[in-house]
Design a protein around this nucleic acid. Structure first.
Lengths: 221, 221
DNA sequence: ATAATTATTTAGGCTCACCTAAATTCCGTC
DNA sequence: GACGGAATTTAGGTGAGCCTAAATAATTAT
């Protein structure tokens, strides 16, 4: 028997799985293999966890058929995502962390902050709508208001603004930082070529390779 | 085999044991029973952990003889205490947590913040020397500069200032708050009686019961 | 000094989240 | 419609950190 009365309802691993299912599936179904890769775990380990989550009613899981979040599971996932993104915003804006370091720190802290901590930092930051990468922060009611913009690889020539950088790798983020391609910055799309996108921005003109351009979500004007 | 490369050197439980041994022992020896009570765990569970910590060289442990921290164990304990107290100061001063809530939150977070986080909040707060309860914060070099003052139960009549409140229970802390007996506040000791200490402070005159007075560490003037 | 009491350790289990190796089931191709 | 390769699940283990119950050592009281 365990004497500890203050046990969280879900383990850290369980929360991480739910978040991963959410982020990989976007509401749809996710395969165990994809989940195993994201979690850096063997596929066999995924099976066991999915059974547990299904038993808790957080996930719909039929063997060989993939997983999908239930409404309850979705709520948990959004709560974790809210913690994570608020923490990222907080670490960057209030504590001066560089934007490539916030992800790792937030990943560790997201499971350990209270609702009060969440509220306090949200308030301190003026209830931000996006984190430093431009990812939208779920509201306290766990809705995600923001529509997605196109990727830089899908845009016609014209004037845009970087909305979101879909990368968490520190090295990649440093590159975008140096190119002044961070959320809010202007980008001019000059031409799309098979190799990438020719752009003009605050850091001058360059041919942005497709692998990088693909990762930038933009908004008109 | 575990694929996770980013495993902390010590588990949360191990850090908690080291901190508890430090705080219970004050450099001296601690009994397994005392440790079991502090950790809210069965004495049998303590034995196993002490063997592990001894194997890691963090603790000197001879069966039936109690435990004592080694220099390496002391360093770990002080690092954890530094995290804890810095977090308490941060939660109270920067995030506006009430002083009776900071302990619980800090207890959860202390194991999960990076050295960078530690530095940033220390800097943000102007490198505070004490937490909201007046407990001294170990320096980054892990020394604890501050001398202890007398308890209110041990003082001659005269003028003092509250230095430290040796309590973590939220209810007790609320009482001291209401009596304006928090670190930095002035207290006048009028008389010591068997029942307690008659004092005058910002909240007026009263007979402070011995159990409460005992918990207040004060400083002259 | 011996007996009673208390503190501590040993022995044996449990759960969690992971692992490997060995089935299975699925799916696209022939 | 059968077959082969890939994905997935089953079966059986591991280590951490806790548990209970039973044995043993230390301390206190008579």
């Amino acid at each position: 028997m365990n004497l500890d009365a203050t046990k969280p309802l879900l383990s850290e691993a369980q929360e991480d799985y739910l978040k991963a299912i959410y982020q990989l599936g976007e509401g749809g179904t996710v395969t165990p293999l994809a989940l195993a890769e994201r979690m850096r775990v063997r596929p066999a380990s995924v099976t066991g966890m999915l059974k547990k989550l299904a038993a808790l009613g957080l996930v719909e899981y039929a063997p060989y058929r993939g997983v999908r979040l239930t409404p309850a599971g979705l709520r948990v996932a959004l709560e974790v995502v809210r913690h994570h993104r608020l923490l990222e915003a907080f670490l960057a804006k209030a504590l001066g962390f560089s934007w490539e370091r916030v992800h790792e720190e937030a990943d560790r802290l997201e499971h350990h902050i209270s609702e009060e901590f969440e509220e306090r930092i949200s308030e301190l930051l003026g209830h931000p709508e996006r984190d430093p990468h431009g990812d939208p922060i779920p509201t306290p009611e766990l809705t995600l208001p923001h529509a997605r913009g196109p990727r830089l690889t899908e845009t016609e020539p014209g004037e845009y603004r970087v909305q979101r950088v879909h990368a968490q790798d520190a090295d990649a983020l440093r590159v975008f930082e140096r190119l002044a391609l961070t959320p809010g910055k202007p980008v001019k799309v000059l031409e799309r070529t098979p190799l990438g996108v020719r752009i003009g921005g605050e850091a001058g003109r360059l041919l942005l390779p497709a692998e990088l351009a693909e990762v930038l979500e933009v908004t008109s004007r």
